[in-house]
Amino acid sequence: MDQELRQKILNLLDQHRIMTIATLRPDGWPQATTVGYVNDGLTLYFLCGLESQKAANLAGDDRVSLTIDHDTPDIMAITGLSMAAHAQVVSDRSEAAKVLQLLPSKYPEQTSLPVSMPTPEEVRIFRLTPVVISVLDYAKGFGHTDLVTC
């Protein structure tokens, strides 16, 4: 991947803080859910409940698809990311602590944080490692995408 495209992906990741993630249910149907995320470079992280449907789905199949985008009144200003990725549970305490420390940086306008942030034992933290990234940029033409294999 060239440096310009990598920087464009990183800028889009930094500009946003929610994504729609699709996991596969046991019956084969995809399940799409909106979640918050943080990223460390191209690696994304999200939290969910220990017994959530997402966690159960990912225990059976670690493949996900996700989108990150925003609404715009100008159709030719549509930009965003679509990714195919593998999800792994973060079990290393130092990595989990790093993820939990990154969360407040995504919400700088939040003046008061919860009394206590969840601990790694109270939530399931997933690391998303991209396999394919599609960068959508209508400014380059209707429906234009740049495809990157990681």
Rank of each mutant, 00 (worst) to 15 (best):
M1P: 13
E4R: 06
I9C: 05
I9G: 00
I9Y: 11
L12D: 03
L13T: 12
L13I: 15
D14W: 10
D14R: 12
H16N: 10
R17S: 03
I18P: 00
I21F: 06
T23W: 00
R25H: 12
P26E: 09
D27P: 15
A32F: 01
V35M: 09
G36C: 08
G41W: 15
G41P: 10
F46C: 01
C48T: 15
E51D: 14
S52Y: 14
S52P: 11
Q53A: 05
K54H: 14
A55H: 09
A55V: 04
A56I: 13
N57L: 07
L58R: 04
A59Y: 02
D62A: 08
R63H: 14
V64N: 01
T67W: 03
T67N: 00
P73V: 14
D74R: 14
D74H: 13
D74M: 11
D74Q: 13
I75T: 12
I75Y: 09
M76C: 02
M83K: 00
A85V: 15
H86Y: 10
Q88C: 01
D92N: 12
D92H: 10
E95K: 05
A96Q: 05
K98Q: 08
L100Y: 09
L100C: 06
L102T: 13
L103E: 00
P104C: 06
P104D: 06
K106T: 10
K106H: 04
Y107P: 01
P108F: 11
P114Q: 06
P114V: 06
V115F: 10
V115Y: 08
S116N: 13
S116V: 14
M117R: 06
P118W: 07
P120S: 01
E121W: 15
E122C: 03
E122N: 07
R124Q: 05
I125K: 04
F126C: 02
P130F: 09
V131E: 05
V131N: 01
I133C: 01
S134W: 14
A139E: 09
K140C: 02
G141R: 13
H144I: 13
T145C: 05
T145A: 04
D146T: 12
T149R: 10
C150T: 14
